[in-house]
Simulated assay, not measured.
Amino acid sequence: MTAISLLEHPRHTDHLRLRDGKTLTVRFVGADEGEALQGYFRKLSMQSRHSRFLGAMSELSASELGHFIHVGENDRFSVVAVMMNDGRETIVGEARYGFDSATESFEFGISIDDRWQRQGIASALLGNLECRAAALGARHMFGDTLRSNEAMIALAHKSGFAFTRHPDDWKLARFEKPIDPIRQDIPCASWKLAAAQRVAEMVV
């Protein structure tokens, strides 16, 4: 499967339907959204930030925030999950992922705002990431979590991930899953763009 350059489509957006019928929008972080993203992380509970960054952290450092908002830098991407709340777009979750073409692997990490947890947002976001992994040409995806993070462990099990020992840190657990490159039942803009590119190549 031919990998697609997502930088050519920096604002592509996915609209996902949650189990309660509400719409969750997943899109790349904008270069002008550093303050909004920092505000999101500051509002997370201490436990949620600890789980997301695998250690104590109150906010992103200036350099780390710069990496988040520069989508595509070093083949790493950041997306936000947003919903309308009282007429305003609100960040309810985020994810950061990277693709290694040499190993065909897709690494990711996610978080969900404490006030919006247990509404199916994490499952929807994880499914969207699986589609993005397939569109990039990944053969497997993986993430790391603290062994104490019961919520992430339960979500990964539910989503079909298998757990293995982390290669470097006994406090962490690694969960991974093979990716079907021809799977089309998880819609996302990345998949549509990749499919269109493959069709164009066949025509040529």
Rank of each mutant, 00 (worst) to 15 (best):
Ser45Ile: 07
Lys171Asp: 05
Thr145Gln: 13
Phe28Ser: 05
Ile121Ser: 01
Met1Asp: 00
His12Glu: 04
Ala138His: 02
Thr90Leu: 14
Trp191Gly: 07
Ser45Asp: 11
Asn85Arg: 15
Asp185Ser: 02
Met152Ile: 08
Ser111Gly: 04
Pro10Met: 07
Arg115Leu: 14
Lys22Phe: 13
Trp170Ala: 14
Ser148Lys: 09
Val29Asp: 02
Phe142Val: 02
Gln119Pro: 12
Gly55Cys: 00
Val79Glu: 06
Ile121Glu: 01
Gly66Asn: 12
Val29Ile: 11
Leu60His: 05
Leu16Phe: 03
Trp116Val: 01
Thr103Leu: 07
Met46Asp: 12
Arg19Val: 08
Ala195Val: 09
Leu126Asn: 07
Leu155Glu: 02
Trp191Tyr: 02
Leu18Ala: 03
Glu107Trp: 10
Asp185Thr: 04
Met152Trp: 03
Leu146Met: 02
Lys158Ser: 05
Ser123Tyr: 09
Val82Arg: 05
Arg96Asn: 10
Val79Tyr: 02
Met84Glu: 15
Arg49Leu: 14
Leu136Glu: 03
Ala162Lys: 12
Leu16Cys: 09
Glu130Trp: 03
Ser45Pro: 05
Phe142Gly: 12
Glu150Ser: 14
His166Phe: 00
Val79Asp: 01
Gly72Trp: 01
Phe77Met: 01
Arg132Val: 13
Ala156Ser: 11
Lys43Arg: 15
Pro181Glu: 07
Lys171His: 15
Gly39Pro: 08
Ala195Tyr: 10
Lys22Gln: 15
Leu16Lys: 01
Met46Arg: 15
Gly93His: 04
Ala138Gly: 02
Ile121Tyr: 13
Gly72Asn: 09
Ile121Val: 07
Phe68Leu: 06
Glu201Gly: 11
Gly98Pro: 02
Glu150Phe: 04
Ile69Asp: 06
Met202Phe: 13
Tyr40His: 09
Arg96Ile: 12
Arg147His: 12
Leu125Pro: 00
Ala133Val: 10
Thr90Val: 11
Arg198Glu: 06
Ala156Lys: 07
Ile179Glu: 12
Gly98Glu: 00
Phe175Glu: 11
Ala195Met: 07
Ala173Trp: 02
Asp100Gln: 01
Ile69Arg: 14
Ile121Cys: 00
Lys43Thr: 08
Gly120Gln: 00
His70Gly: 15
His12Thr: 09
Phe163Ile: 06
Ile112Arg: 09
Phe142Met: 14
Cys131Met: 04
Met83Trp: 10
